[in-house]
């Protein structure tokens, strides 16, 4: 880099100043607002809102949906990444494009398509009715919508890593007679360990915060189909601002924890490669 002249030094600090101002105003201030608003009426009110029966139900449902999303997308991500990176076949490009589709679909539409597939106007509805299975306005629908919006999150992290690793090691192991599970455990998994964890973190972050898709499909039954973000909305729209921000504070803490885990995972992954 060329030596720093006085002019370039001034420019440097102007650009850093603009960046810091932007980040503080747009990102830090909203975080601080959530915490200060949540604690505005003291710890007791905060604790009351957080330990409220409906809030606890919402926390549990959010954790359940997030857990399912991570689990299902892990299974999908591992199989999809294996199929896409270890073999040659026609239509690979199409397949990867289709896997990425859910990211571009508006959350509201993501909810709508499940209402159309399983709701009253669907040809499947009489069947579901006869079997007494509830999907729309019930927990399975919330899980489905959450899985949909986070669908490519894990495969997307695994595919580039496996692609650059190639297939030589697996081929050698297979020719020497190693079983498929052994190959995966001993050869493939160590390569994708950090990418996998990174994907899990991103998936969990999006899953716990999903709002639009879940909002369409939940029916907002308090204590039954209310996730944390939906609970925030209800409280806010009822002008219960302090409880709304208190519940948000739980999500803020989860988000900060996720950001920290993400940095650690990224750092370790970089160090090993």
């Amino acid at each position: 880099m060329h030596e720093e002249t006085k002019g370039s030094k001034i420019l440097k600090w102007i650009l850093i100043g603009v960046s810091l101002l932007f980040v503080v105003l747009m990102l830090v201030l909203p975080l601080v607002t959530v915490i200060t608003e949540a604690l505005k009426s003291g710890w007791q009110v905060f604790w009351q809102a957080v330990s409220d029966e409906y809030t606890v139900d919402a926390i549990l449902l959010t954790l359940e949906a997030t857990g399912f999303a991570v689990l299902i997308n892990t299974v999908f991500g591992v199989f999809a990444a294996w199929a896409i990176t270890k073999f040659r076949f026609k239509g690979k490009k199409l397949l990867t494009t289709l896997i990425d589709l859910p990211v571009t679909v508006s959350p509201v539409i993501a909810g709508l398509i499940f209402v159309l597939t399983f709701g009253r106007q669907s040809p499947l509805y009489p069947v579901l009715q006869a079997l007494d299975i509830k999907i729309i306005f019930a927990v399975p629908g919330i899980i489905l919508a959450t899985v949909f919006v986070t669908f490519p999150f894990i495969s997307r992290e695994l595919i580039p890593v496996l692609e650059s690793q190639g297939t030589d090691e697996e081929e050698a192991a297979a020719l020497m007679g190693a079983k498929g599970t052994t190959i995966f455990r001993k050869i493939t998994f160590p390569h994708i360990k950090w990418a996998f964890l990174y994907g899990v973190v991103l998936c969990a972050a999006r899953a716990m915060g999903e709002f639009g898709a879940v909002s369409v499909i939940s029916g907002h039954l308090r204590g039954k189909t209310n996730t944390l973000p939906l609970h925030v909305e209800i409280l806010f729209n009822e002008f219960k601002y302090v409880p709304a921000f208190a519940v948000s504070a739980i999500l803020v803490i989860m988000a900060v924890v996720i950001l920290i885990i993400r940095s650690v995972v990224e750092y370790k992954g970089k160090k090993e490669s």
């Binding site: 909203p30 959530v34 915060g209 709002f211 639009g212 944390l228 939906l230 925030v232 999500l251 996720i258």
Partner: peptide
């Protein structure tokens, strides 16, 4: 990482 609804009300 931050849920959109939380960002919205903040």
């Amino acid at each position: 990482a931050l849920p959109t609804a939380v960002a919205g009300i903040a």
